[in-house]
């Protein structure tokens, strides 16, 4: 077992564990924190998989901005501890868990099967420069500019939706 593998399994366990906390925790704020832990663990996994740029981006954007936004909203709305689920909703839950399991099986089988067929390709360099070069190439340039407009739209939309009537 190489160091990478060990580290991978450690961070994977952390991710799964905090994901379960996210799902199982009653208080939304604690769920948010757990999700931050998950994100950071995933960031580490990204790094272990040879993608430093994305790893940093994950921490900065996801954990740093999006989750902060979540926490802002949680604080704004002063969410309380969540009530226990309504009676009779166990049908929905059971169905959901069942279907979730099936989904895992399906997705997992697809993913695992594909990777087993051929081994990983060598010579993989995902440094910032290389990614940036691909990002600004004609293949993805339009999409890149479009996302900026998307963010503008989101900005305007969020303001319009959430403001109070004057």
């Amino acid at each position: 077992m190489t160091l990478d593998a060990i580290l991978f399994y450690v961070f994977a366990a952390a991710a799964v564990g905090s994901a379960l906390v996210v799902v199982g925790q009653r208080h939304p704020t604690y769920s948010a924190f757990a999700l931050i832990v998950t994100l950071c663990s995933l960031s580490a996994v990204f790094g272990l998989l040879g993608s430093p740029f994305i790893a940093v981006l994950q921490v900065v954007v996801y954990a740093g901005a999006i989750m902060v936004l979540f926490l802002f909203v949680l604080m704004l709305l002063s969410v309380k501890r969540e009530e226990p689920p309504a009676r009779g909703a166990w049908g929905v839950k059971a169905t959901a868990i069942g279907l979730g399991a099936v989904l895992v099986a399906q997705v997992g089988s697809v993913l695992a099967a594909s990777a087993r067929v051929t081994p990983a390709a060598p010579g993989f360099n995902a440094s910032t420069g290389h990614v940036a070069r691909l990002l600004f190439s004609p293949a993805y340039l339009y999409v890149f500019e479009a996302t900026s407009i998307l963010i503008l739209a989101a900005l305007v939309g969020a303001v319009a939706l959430a403001k109070r009537e004057m």
Binding site: V92, T95, A96, L99, V102, L103, Q106
Partner: peptide
């Protein structure tokens, strides 16, 4: 949402 999930699972299952 459950129905959407169910639908997705069904389609995936069929395809796989």
């Amino acid at each position: 949402a459950l129905l959407i999930l169910g639908g997705a699972v069904t389609v995936l299952g069929y395809l796989l």
